[in-house]
Amino acid sequence: MKRKFKINRQVLRKSEEIFYRVLMILSTSIIIIALLAIIISILVKGIPSLSWSMISQTPKGGYYFGKEGGILNAIIGSLYLSFGATMLALVFSLPLALYMNIHKMKQKNVVNVIRFFLDLLWGIPSIVYGAFGFTIMVYFGLRTSLLAGIITVTLFIIPIMVRSMDEVLKTVPKGLLESAFSLGSTRSETAFRVMLRQCIPGMITAILLAFGRAIGDAAAVLFTAGYTDYIPNSLSQPTATLPLSVFFQLSSPIPEVQSRAYASAVVLTAIVLIISIASRGFSSRYQKNRIK
């Protein structure tokens, strides 16, 4: 009797494990299925109405009633905006990331405080940045413009960029730093000529990550960048962005315009996927040049 009970317990132990393993595999596949569902549904809805004229033309008169035209304004606008914001953010992020890992190498407390603040800033929703950017914009008497959009998006991506650069710089062995110092180089030489060169692939990945965030975010530019049918040719003009063009076209009641929204979504997804693949390629390709 006792023996039988023992066997039962063994079976129970085993079957509990099997039960949970099935659940685990199920939940892992849910995640994969969700990604496939997103990409496939966007492609299925969007590909039929995607055409060359759609990505090579700006909206013509009556575009939003289903007439001719394309979303070139939004594509170019988004690229301008994200490129500008990424460059501007780089000016602040790279020095800060190097500062944390070289100048403050010994003061762990200071570094932890910065990391804490960056994580805090990272967590703040982009709509709050958008609202704040709008307030600043009104305060300085600016209108909705490319510049206002760039500044808002810069604020929003700085924490992302610094944090990912920091993650890369953290992995550099201390010995490299110490040997650079012992050869008599100053801190800035160590930072820019040794550490930066060592971490170039990771840095590019961080920049591309921030670029992807910048191009995909709609809430921060909703009030600050405005929307227009033209390609902006100066910083003070408003600009269209891809996420907003998807959003606005989708809220139209006309079916042709809605199907164009799906096509715009395909364009946006494609850009983001290309960035993601490129950053993967970078981080693996230049890995071999690193001093281990």
Binding site: A265, T269, I275
Partner: peptide
């Protein structure tokens, strides 16, 4: 898969 899911813009999630 995780990286791409994290990188998809929120407006695409909305369309989906």
């Amino acid at each position: 898969v995780i990286d791409i899911l994290a990188g998809i813009p929120s407006v695409i999630y909305g369309v989906w």
